[in-house]
């Protein structure tokens, strides 16, 4: 799983370029996320548009990525594919993460800024 990070305004956007986050890649994913989110903006967004498959180990790694964030940082998820969205829905993890499409306005940030 390759992760690319870029800073867009006040948000660190991490884009996953692999097709899957599964049991075979969960630990690497979590470690890579820790390195990328250790410093930088408090708002972190993980773009999963290219990820077609997440199993429960992969889901656990995404949850762990949020739990290991330094205090005060938040993680939101962008552009879930249908199968990945289903895993989040069935486990009700969609209630834990802010999930949105990358084109949508982040109203919280807009309200906070104004």
């Amino acid at each position: 799983m390759e992760l690319q990070a870029e800073i867009d305004g006040e948000t660190l956007i991490i884009t996953a370029s692999g097709r899957r986050i599964d049991a075979a890649g969960a630990i690497d994913f979590k470690d890579e996320m820790r390195k990328l989110t250790e410093f930088g903006p408090d708002k972190v967004a993980l773009n999963l548009a290219s990820v077609e498959f997440v199993d429960s180990s992969g889901l656990g790694a995404v949850v762990a990525s949020m739990k290991q964030l330094p205090a005060g940082k938040t993680l939101s998820l962008l552009d879930l594919t249908p199968t990945v969205a289903k895993v989040f829905r069935l486990t009700r993890m969609d209630s834990v993460f802010e999930i949105r499409k990358s084109g949508e306005i982040d109203w919280d940030a807009w309200v906070n800024a104004s």
């Binding site: 429960s56 889901l59 656990g60 739990k67 069935l90 834990v96």
Partner: peptide, 23 residues
């Protein structure tokens, strides 16, 4: 799981059989 909990208490595993039985 009760997911209305502090971030540090969120589960990182144990979802497998619930998913299997659902599907």
């Amino acid at each position: 799981y009760d997911l209305y909990c502090p971030r540090k208490d969120l589960p990182e595993g144990g979802f497998g059989w619930a998913l299997i039985r659902e599907l």
